[in-house]
Design a protein around this nucleic acid. Sequence first.
DNA 1: TACGTGACGGTTGAT
DNA 2: TAATCAACCGTCACG
Length: 199
Amino acid sequence: MISRGHSSINQLGGIFANGKPLPFHIRLRILELALFGYRPCDISRQLLVSHGCVSKILARFTETGSILPGAIGGSKPRVSTPLVINKIRQYKEQNSSLFAWEIRERLLYDGICARDCLPSVSSINRILRRTLGRSKPRNHFRHTLKPAACEPDARTRSDQEPSQTSPVWSTSDPHQGTRKAAFSIRDILNLKEENNEIK
DNA sequence: TACGTGACGGTTGAT
DNA sequence: TAATCAACCGTCACG
């Protein structure tokens, strides 16, 4: 494998960025060609993408209905959801002499958190510092973007991966640039009818 | 030859 | 602010 700066060249001569998802238009092309009936090996050769990658993308598509890459990065889902934070604050307001470990046990006892989702003592202390240390809690916008570990659909990335019935990709895709329209399999199949020539 | 899969080295973002 | 961790990525090699 040849490396040129941040991008490398694979065995087929294609350029790729190690660790980063393939550009959206390449992913789309893979799907298009597959829908046209091209074999993965043909797609691989034509687009200069490794057959393993083609295989993965198509397998993912059949599984999830999406050709979008998954969400890269991030750590384990948060346990300190707004609900948990409010409860902790509530406990502390009711009884200011409560220890963090006691709050922890109450969260478990009251069924707010499962045992494996309980925030650590240090987390509870941090939450108390943040929420009781100032009159207004910090902006929890980010917390509400993704479901937390103990909530349903945790880390399903439903905000990023459309379902089978919804558009195949969203406009939030970084590779799309200013693309406005959302597409669906039907769109692609229509495209197939209109555009018979494949390069 | 075609394909699925696991190992690997890399990137990313939350904690 | 930097380090750590755990998710994901695409390539490669093997069967």
